[in-house]
Nucleic acid binder design. Structure first.
Lengths: 338, 338
DNA sequence: TTGAAAGCGCTAACAG
DNA sequence: CTGTTAGCGCTTTCAA
């Protein structure tokens, strides 16, 4: 396998020193217009491409980012990833994806690989950020930002205010006359994506003077199948609910699926609101009303935050949520009580 | 920012030469068990991590792969990606994702970046493989494999036999009594994912002695919205179809959506079969019967092919398709003709 | 405006 | 079994 050209080859062919070629390549001062032209010409002639690895060895910059996410194939993360990728591309960075597959061991292994490969920063999406990770990342002194999650440490994050978002979502239902609202929450005990959301649900009810009932919240794992099961469980214990707030669109789709199977019409008999506003909400039948997170923008911003931090830590930021109204919610007439 | 430790630091602290440390790190022979232990201990003590960049400069191997795909956030590609990622992880490779965003300029830019970053191979998913790409890749002498697409060049690919798959899918409908079957095809003129599929459709009809009618095939772009439009167009010109074969699950979901809006029941009035067997087929209401491609496996195999090719080109491979039967197809009674 | 030379952190002969 | 040394391809002083 014959070698590609190196800067040396270019220098020789252009009758200049490698230093000069390097300067030209990097737009540094220190050469005449004439040599520049000459060198550039030789470069195109030879089809020379600089070796980013050699460059990285000196600069200690690789122009690549590592992204850790729970599952590339889930709609949620893949939209964030797509925002990351787009922004990275604009800023001339590459992104390495690491599918942590909800398993901490793999995460640690990835962290190590990313460090060895000298990535310039890490974006960590949506999973619980363990102390172990914190220690590893602190040790490697790499900038990191958390997307759609946060931690007990001083690490910048970017997410929506879940409690507020759910509060708004449930208020939306309340304003439309619903009084018996169930909730399909995320993983039980999850301090980031479950507990604050239940809190939002409680607060909304409270605002309307409705008592919170434990049996009206059931737990899933954010996935489709768990939505099916959760809906079944919820309805089994609560024959009277007229609406369900779901903590992810996928779970809402699962609920929809269960209701369809049971021949319970949405939204005529039961209203549904999802969370995230991913493509699955658009594609659902009926299209799902959902509390939208600006996933793509969050992805974009995360790389901006990671890279634009001049020196110190960059600040965390909350992104606005927004209810996407579609067709899965019906207003019910309060006077009739049904 | 203080530096991380280098192999030199380890060597010094362990009172050996860097060569010895290197040998130990790379499991090469040439040291006593005693020094090995000593060195390993020092390594953990210091928390030393080798620098893969420096390594790569010598080895000419970076243990990273580049993946070019049309959109990370589309279900199809993200499943393939997830297979790639898993297999790469098993083989200790990292993967860089490049979202080509259906635009050739970006693809060229990525190809260049991947080359500069010295990736060990490239996986190209599902898009049309232009001559321009071929030239660029040939110039960089990098192994490449195509997934779910193929080319006019001698480049290994991995895909299902689309013609055969569609033939089977349409036969499935035919066997269940359908005689007037419409098709929602992909991008018009696409020689990879559209023309062969239409061919399969034709052949199936032909087997049953049913005449092919141009007006019964309409084109989309594989996406959800295009499925809505295509279904509308198809039905407008063909009041009599009892079944529609769709060239992607997303388009089938679009069709489903349109039919729902029109209050046309699936599968009672119209049967639907999709293509791909992605999560959207599972989540649809009713769940979609679809011609499944082993997307995840294709992703896995692609990296195997890329990496395991001893020397020469590895062979292309066709993957088996399989019909996933769900609830979007009804058998119709031929004797009544309806 | 230019070039020579010293590394970046590591591996791989080559000697001992 | 171990160490010395010459690079990998590039950037960056320092001198000229």
């Amino acid at each position: 396998m014959e070698m590609s050209y190196t800067i040396k080859d270019v220098a020789k062919k252009a009758n200049v020193s490698v230093a000069t070629v390097s300067r030209i390549l990097n737009n540094l001062p220190g050469y005449s217009e004439k040599t520049k032209e000459k060198v550039l010409q030789v470069i195109t002639e030879m089809g020379y491409q600089p070796n980013a690895i050699a460059r990285g060895l000196i600069n200690k910059k690789t122009k690549t980012l590592g992204v850790l996410l729970p599952a590339v194939s889930d709609t949620f993360a893949s939209v964030v990833l797509s925002g990351i990728e787009d922004m990275a591309h604009d800023l001339d960075y590459s992104v390495m994806v690491c599918n942590t597959a909800k398993d901490g061991i793999r995460t640690m292994k990835y962290l190590q690989a990313l460090r060895e490969k000298q990535v310039d920063g890490i974006i960590f999406i949506s999973e619980f950020f363990k102390e172990e990770y914190y220690n590893a990342i602190t040790a490697m002194k790499l900038p990191i930002v958390l997307v759609s999650t946060k931690s007990a440490y001083d690490i910048p994050f970017i997410k929506v205010d879940d409690e507020k978002a759910v509060l708004d979502g449930v208020m939306y239902l309340l304003e439309r006359g619903h009084r018996s609202i169930g909730m399909i929450a995320g993983t039980k005990g999850d301090t980031i994506a479950t507990i604050p959301r239940i809190e939002g649900y409680k607060k909304a009810l409270n605002k309307q003077g409705i008592a919170f009932e434990t049996k009206k919240v059931v737990y899933g794992d954010f996935g489709f199948e768990s939505g099916i099961e959760a809906a079944e469980e919820l309805l089994y214990h609560n024959k009277d609910v007229t609406a369900i707030f779901c903590s992810s669109d996928e779970m809402a789709a699962g609920a929809l699926s269960y209701l369809y199977r049971m021949s319970i019409r949405v939204p005529d008999e039961i209203s549904l609101v999802g969370y995230d506003n991913t493509k699955v909400a658009e594609m659902a039948i009926p299209p799902l009303t959902t509390v939208g997170q600006p996933l793509y923008e969050m992805g974009k911003n995360s790389v901006r935050m990671l890279l634009e931090r001049e020196d110190g830590q960059s600040k965390s930021m909350f992104m606005p949520h927004k209810i996407a109204e579609r067709e899965s919610v019906k207003s019910i007439d309060q006077s009739t009580g049904e």
